[in-house]
Design a protein around this nucleic acid. Structure first.
Lengths: 337, 337
DNA sequence: AATAGCATTTCAAACGTTTGAAATAATTGA
DNA sequence: TCAATTATTTCAAACGTTTGAAATGCTATT
């Protein structure tokens, strides 16, 4: 048991050559004789040699660890996005530390410090809804560690790398879909105003209205953060005017939409069955709802995650200059249920 | 920008002492003078010295990486359990590689090999529903790398470390609860028979019946794997006998339960509203269902995860002998909605 | 004043790689 | 055949720590 680990040295002794020849043979150096390479590589394969990552990392002054900060793993979008990140990171020899801010700035700062101490080679972050000052994240770039913001990002700041869902297009499509089904009074229920793409989504909504000559009415727009009472009062506002009673609803996120639906049902809204809803997310749970949304906006979280890690690795490998700020958009699809 | 990293050597030069003194001072060696320690520690703090993990790992012949294999991150139980693992691992300087088998043995074997190559210091695994041969996992222990099975584990095998929910007790409690509410015909809908604790749960169910003098009827028991058609036909079996029509149902897992409820509703089961259901999981989504289960069995996934990583670290640190096989149970709670 | 004994610090090797420079071997040309 | 090339291999240092052994400094004892 507990066999001595296979190292370059061990291979070298077996093959009666120097450690450096073995190393270079395995790394396919052109100065190494082809036959030697073959011998070394075969031996390495047979003995199941695996290079020691710690040694390589030490030598290369890298940790091969990517940090991720996101609000909450229980959020369906983030869980799925992680999958894209992990897959691609792993394929490239990187490990990922996932950490949850619980949407609290305080915690986010702590995690950032922790990750900085862990010497991550790069950071992927979806900021908390309260993050407006970026000192704790800027320190990464100041130390030459690239940062990619994904999904939630500082809207006003052009000097950062961003990967995000094309939430404008998604919302445009959803609104258009409802218009095409004959709706004239489509409400928009936005998310926390602090989250930047709340506004992109709103713009998608409003542009779809405009392009299709549906008059915009300010009474049909309300915002909520993620807690229930807030959502309920937003919905009350939207549906309290008999004149302008909405017949359709586009919501920032499915959990919010579910709260809305639940509320409308609970008050026995007279036209409840005619109201058609769409939200961002495409949660599998929808199939269990008695009054499901008519469609969902699929945000392709895996793809967002994968694009974020791809970009980050390019930055880490200096294939893209760190100040050459990128903005990558991932399109949404409308999924009709 | 890109300031030279703070190393022991750097500190040593600043303080005009040797690297080893600095190292020992920071590690609180008794042979180092107290005053020296103070000076070193202060300097380290002021300069934000962080020891280089790669170097330490190389020296200590450790990777400080824990591997996790689980079926699916989109499963609410596993997502939550991860949280417990990550928190505790991080606190102890370990990183975690999470990998998903998608409940396929083939993929599980691949992942195991990958993690072995990554030289993880330990492995936490919830096996796929098809895992019956354990060669790919046994090789870890053969190389002295401890393995902890959590939740899903090889039931017949006593020679392994296990951390699992006390699913017997959870199911007992749920059944008892239904009996106390006057039910006499309580159906049990089990999960895949390959998953070992399907039987523990069944035993909880049956013992609760026995202890409360409710006669057991074989017709009231059915099994399903996780796909819908399967669940539907199981439910059909349970509810096709007018004589023994169940008035309550205990289900292996909430998603299965939701499928069952959905089906019963869809066929306009005459006594649908009287049927009371309980499933394992306590998914937050329940609040959006029109016909929610009357209660949920909360499995405390975070705690299961935390217990698994705690045990694993003890094994890694040889605080527990690797052959001194442990079995840790985490109790469930019944949450009435 | 020399020495034993202790406290404290430093030396030096090791962990497993990578890599430029130096050394050696093989081949070519005259 | 000998030098000049070229091909191939080896040396040696470095990455940043840890740690037992050796060295140094100091105090107390005689």
């Amino acid at each position: 048991m507990q066999n001595t680990p296979i190292t370059l040295k061990f291979l070298a002794e077996k093959l009666k050559m120097s450690v450096s020849t073995v190393s270079k043979a395995l790394n396919n150096y052109p100065t190494i004789n082809e036959y030697t390479k073959k011998r070394v590589q075969e031996m390495a394969r047979d003995l199941h040699f695996t290079p020691n990552k710690s040694a390589i990392n030490l030598k290369e002054r890298k940790s091969r660890i990517i940090g991720i900060i996101l609000p909450n793993l229980l959020d369906y979008f983030f869980t799925r996005s992680i999958y894209g990140v992990e897959q691609f990171a792993m394929k490239n020899g990187y490990n990922v530390i996932i950490s949850q801010s619980h949407d609290e700035l305080e915690k986010e700062i702590q995690l950032a410090d922790m990750l900085l101490k862990s010497r991550v080679d790069g950071l992927i972050v979806a900021i908390s809804k309260n993050t407006q000052d970026f000192g704790h994240l800027d320190q990464f770039e100041n130390m030459g560690i690239p940062v990619v913001y994904y999904t939630r990002n500082p809207s006003f700041n052009l000097s950062c790398h961003k990967v995000l869902g094309n939430t404008f297009q998604g919302c445009y499509q959803a609104t258009k879909f409802l218009i095409d089904r004959g709706h004239k009074k489509i409400a928009y229920l936005g998310g926390p105003k602090m989250i930047n793409f709340t506004h992109d989504r709103f713009n998608g909504y409003i542009n779809a209205l405009k392009d299709n000559n549906v008059p915009f009415k300010a009474e049909l727009v309300a915002y909520t953060d993620f807690d229930k009472e807030n959502t309920v009062s937003a919905i009350q506002n939207l549906f309290n005017d008999a004149e302008n009673m909405p017949t359709a609803l586009v919501a920032f996120k499915e959990p919010i939409l579910f709260d809305a639906i639940k509320y409308l049902k609970s008050i026995n809204h007279p036209k409840f069955n005619e109201i058609e809803c769409i939200g961002f997310g495409n949660t599998p749970f929808i199939s269990y709802l008695d009054s499901p949304p008519i469609a969902s906006i699929e945000e392709n979280p895996e793809s967002v995650g994968e694009n974020a890690i791809k970009l980050l690795l390019q930055l880490i490998n200096r294939e893209i200059e760190i100040q050459d700020y990128q903005k990558i958009m991932v399109d949404c699809q409308l999924v009709v249920h």
